[in-house]
Amino acid sequence: MNRRTDRHDERGLSQSAQWAVLAPVVMLTLLGVIDAGIWLHARSTVQQAAMTAAESQALAGQDLGQAERIARSMTGELAEVAVTVETGTGRVTVNVEARVPLALDLGLARVGASATRATEHG
């Protein structure tokens, strides 16, 4: 009987060691999946902000500050938002860049998008 108890204890120790190795891997994977979702949402938000600001500027012919305010209002949860609006002959281009707050920053925390639209000729 004593032999049987010893085997059980060794197996328990082995399982504890496995969990000690496996738990950090599981946690990092979970954080990675959550960060990927946050990053994808941020990229989509930045793209939509650039397209909406460019469309607004092209159709309404508003001042450049209005297009920038629109883009900034759409990227409220992101950090270090930079918006540039460029106008040319018959076109407007809006560039939006931001930093995404990630738990595991692997150098992918910056997202950016650009949208160009033809301006309306009154």
Rank of each mutant, 00 (worst) to 15 (best):
1 M>N: 01
1 M>D: 02
2 N>Y: 04
3 R>L: 01
3 R>Q: 02
4 R>F: 01
5 T>W: 00
6 D>W: 00
10 E>Q: 06
10 E>F: 07
10 E>N: 05
10 E>M: 08
10 E>H: 06
11 R>T: 15
11 R>P: 06
12 G>S: 13
12 G>K: 04
13 L>H: 07
14 S>I: 14
16 S>V: 13
17 A>W: 10
18 Q>R: 02
19 W>F: 15
21 V>I: 14
22 L>R: 02
23 A>K: 08
24 P>N: 14
24 P>K: 15
25 V>L: 15
25 V>W: 07
26 V>F: 13
27 M>W: 13
28 L>V: 02
28 L>S: 05
28 L>C: 06
29 T>H: 08
29 T>F: 12
29 T>K: 05
29 T>I: 12
30 L>Y: 03
31 L>A: 09
31 L>R: 03
32 G>A: 01
34 I>E: 14
36 A>C: 06
38 I>F: 15
39 W>N: 09
40 L>R: 06
40 L>Q: 09
41 H>G: 07
41 H>I: 04
41 H>W: 10
42 A>M: 04
43 R>S: 07
44 S>F: 08
46 V>W: 04
46 V>K: 01
47 Q>H: 11
48 Q>P: 04
48 Q>F: 06
49 A>L: 01
50 A>K: 00
50 A>V: 07
50 A>I: 02
50 A>P: 05
50 A>H: 02
53 A>H: 01
54 A>K: 00
54 A>S: 01
54 A>M: 02
55 E>W: 07
55 E>F: 10
56 S>M: 08
56 S>R: 05
57 Q>W: 03
57 Q>P: 03
57 Q>C: 10
58 A>I: 00
59 L>W: 09
62 Q>F: 12
63 D>Y: 05
65 G>Y: 09
65 G>N: 11
66 Q>H: 12
68 E>V: 08
68 E>S: 11
69 R>H: 12
69 R>C: 12
70 I>E: 05
70 I>T: 05
73 S>A: 14
74 M>N: 02
75 T>R: 00
75 T>V: 04
75 T>F: 05
75 T>H: 03
76 G>M: 11
76 G>R: 10
76 G>H: 10
76 G>N: 12
77 E>W: 07
78 L>N: 10
78 L>V: 09
79 A>Y: 11
79 A>L: 15
81 V>P: 01
83 V>C: 13
83 V>H: 13
84 T>I: 05
85 V>R: 09
86 E>S: 10
87 T>H: 08
88 G>Y: 00
88 G>M: 00
90 G>Y: 00
91 R>M: 10
93 T>A: 13
93 T>R: 06
93 T>G: 06
95 N>T: 09
95 N>Y: 09
95 N>S: 12
96 V>I: 12
96 V>K: 03
99 R>F: 04
100 V>P: 02
100 V>W: 03
101 P>N: 08
102 L>F: 05
102 L>A: 01
103 A>G: 05
103 A>T: 05
104 L>K: 00
104 L>C: 02
105 D>Q: 02
106 L>E: 02
108 L>W: 15
108 L>M: 15
109 A>H: 11
109 A>V: 04
109 A>M: 06
109 A>G: 15
110 R>E: 07
110 R>N: 09
110 R>W: 07
112 G>S: 15
112 G>Y: 07
114 S>A: 11
114 S>R: 13
115 A>N: 01
116 T>Y: 03
120 E>W: 10
120 E>H: 06
122 G>D: 12
122 G>W: 14
122 G>N: 07
122 G>L: 14
